[in-house]
Design a binder for these strands. Structure first.
Length: 376
RNA sequence: GGGGGUACGCCGGAGCUGGAGAGCCGGGCCAGACUGUAAAUCUGGUGUCUCAGACUGAAUAGGUUCGAUUCCUAUUACCCCCA
C-alpha cells in the first residue's frame, strides 16, 4: 500500500493523488459509496463499476458481524469473494453505531456492549475483537474502533471520550500488529480523530493521530448535526496538522457542497449515505440541480434524469418515468435514482480531480456550487 | 315486475340507534426531512374563505323535535333475493 500525491492546487489546499491498495488503485479525491450490509443498497456490483464508476466501497463491521456473521464470511473467503466485488473495500469499525445506536449500548473502557437491533442479543465490541472481525471481513482499509460523539456534546464528555478513543487506538494498533491478513494481502489500519467541535481537543487529537504514523488518517465525529461552519473549521484545523503525504479521510461527509469545500481544505476521501438514502427517498442530485422527484412538477417532464450523467439509465430515462416508479414504490425507481446520485457524486470528485490537476479547481468549484446546490 | 338493504372527506373501513364531528383507522395524493445506514424510513398537510379566526358540511327535497348524520316521507343511485 502506498499513496502518491500528484498535484496540489495553487489556490487552495486541494490535492490529487493515487492510493494503491491490494484490490486496485484509487484516484483521489474520491467518494466511497456506503455498502453497510454487503450491498450498496439498490445498486448491483456491475452497475457500481460500469455506470457509477465506484473505485472503492464501504462495509460495516457491526452489521456484517451480526448478519450474516463471521462464520459465513470466513467460509466465503472474506467480503470481497462473498459479494463478488474485486475492487477495494473499507470497513467501518462500528464506532458510528456507538453513536447511531446509542440507546442500545453501554460504553466502558474495555469496549462497548451492544444489544442487537435485530434480535436483542448482547454483543461486546472491543478494540481487539473489532480488529479480529475486520481481519475476517478482509477489507483493504480497516478503521480503528472509536466513539463517534454526538452533537451537541459538552466539552468534558468530548475530552474524556477523545482520550478513550486514543487509548482504544493504541489497543487497535497493538492487535493489528500482532495479527495479519487472512486472505493473502495486507490490510491497513486507519486511526480516527475525535474532539467534537472543540478546537483544542481537535488539535490534540490530530497530533495524537499524526504521531501514530499510520498510512491513512481519518477524521470522525463530524456531520452529526453541527453547523457547516464547525464542520469546515474542524476539518481545516486538523488538515493543517496531519501530514501532507498521507491521505485524509473525512468520515460521513457529505453533501456535494460539503465535499467540494472539504476537498479545498485538503481532504482526499469521503463516504456518505446521503446519495443512496436520499435516492431511495426521492431526492436526486443532478448536474442541473436538486430534484424532489415525487414533486408534481415532474409529472409531465420528459427530459432525461441527467443528460450529463455517466450512467446510461440517467440519460435514457425521463424524470416523469422515474417519478412514476418512485411514487408507485417500484424497486426499479430506487435503483435508477441510486445510480443517478452515486454517478453524480463520483463524477463530481472526478471533475474536482481534473481541475486540481489543471490548476482551475477553485474557480470551477465556485462556478458549479450554485448550480448543483439549488433546486432544478 | 315484487321484496329487502345501503348512501357523509379523493377511496376503503369503523363509529354515532336524538345531545358538541371539519372528524377515528387504513390507503391515495401533496409537501418536507435525511451526512462513517435499526431508514424503499420518518414528519406534516389534505371541505371553503378575506386562514391566530370564520363559514359550510352526513345522497337530494321536505317533515317531526328544544336539538337530526341518527327518526319519518318522497325522490335518486347502487347492492342482494324472487320472478
Amino acid at each position: 500500500m502506498s499513496f502518491d500525491l500528484l498535484h496540489t492546487d495553487p489556490s487552495s489546499s486541494a490535492r490529487a493523488g493515487v492510493l494503491h491498495l491490494p484490490h486496485g488503485d484509487v484516484e483521489t479525491p474520491i467518494f466511497m459509496p456506503v455498502g453497510t450490509a454487503g450491498t450498496v443498497k439498490a445498486v448491483h456490483q456491475q452497475e457500481l463499476k460500469d455506470q457509477v464508476g465506484a473505485q472503492i466501497i464501504l462495509g460495516n463491521t457491526y452489521h456484517l458481524y451480526l448478519r450474516p456473521g463471521m462464520q459465513v464470511l470466513t467460509e466465503a473467503g472474506g467480503l470481497h469473494k462473498f459479494t463478488a466485488w474485486d475492487r477495494p473495500i473499507l470497513t467501518d469499525s462500528g464506532g458510528y453505531q456507538v453513536y447511531s445506536l446509542s440507546k442500545q449500548r453501554k460504553i466502558k473502557e474495555e469496549g462497548v456492549k451492544f444489544r442487537s437491533h435485530i434480535d436483542g442479543s448482547i454483543h461486546v465490541f472491543t478494540p481487539e475483537n473489532v480488529m479480529d472481525i475486520q481481519r475476517q471481513i478482509g477489507a483493504d482499509i480497516i478503521m480503528a474502533f472509536d466513539e463517534c460523539t454526538p452533537y451537541p456534546c459538552d466539552e468534558k464528555y468530548a475530552r474524556r471520550s477523545m482520550h478513550m478513543t486514543h487509548r482504544w487506538l493504541d489497543r487497535c494498533i497493538t492487535r493489528h500488529k500482532e495479527t495479519e491478513g487472512l486472505y493473502g494481502y495486507e490490510q491497513i489500519l486507519a486511526p480516527i480523530i475525535q474532539g467534537s467541535t472543540y478546537p483544542e481537543l481537535r488539535k490534540q487529537s490530530a497530533e495524537y493521530i499524526a504521531n501514530c504514523d499510520m498510512p491513512i488518517n481519518a477524521i470522525g465525529g463530524l456531520s452529526v448535526g453541527e453547523p457547516h461552519e464547525d464542520l469546515y473549521a474542524m476539518t481545516n484545523l486538523v488538515c493543517e496538522i496531519l501530514p501532507k503525504e498521507k491521505p485524509r479521510y473525512l468520515m460521513g461527509v457529505g453533501t456535494p457542497a460539503n465535499i467540494l469545500e472539504c476537498i479545498a481544505l485538503g481532504i482526499d476521501m469521503f463516504d456518505c449515505v446521503l446519495p443512496t438514502r436520499n435516492a431511495r427517498h426521492g431526492l436526486l442530485y443532478t448536474s442541473q440541480g436538486i430534484v424532489h422527484i415525487r414533486n408534481e412538477k415532474w409529472k409531465h417532464c420528459f427530459d432525461p434524469i441527467d443528460s450529463e450523467s455517466s450512467a446510461t439509465t440517467s440519460r435514457d430515462h425521463t424524470l416523469a418515468y422515474l417519478r412514476h416508479l418512485t411514487i408507485s414504490g417500484e424497486a426499479l425507481g430506487a435503483m435508477i435514482a441510486s445510480i443517478q446520485n452515486l454517478s453524480f457524486f463520483l463524477s463530481l470528485v472526478r471533475k474536482a480531480r481534473l481541475h486540481i490537476i489543471d490548476g482551475t479547481f477553485s474557480s470551477w468549484k465556485d462556478s458549479i456550487l450554485p448550480v448543483i446546490s439549488n433546486h432544478r
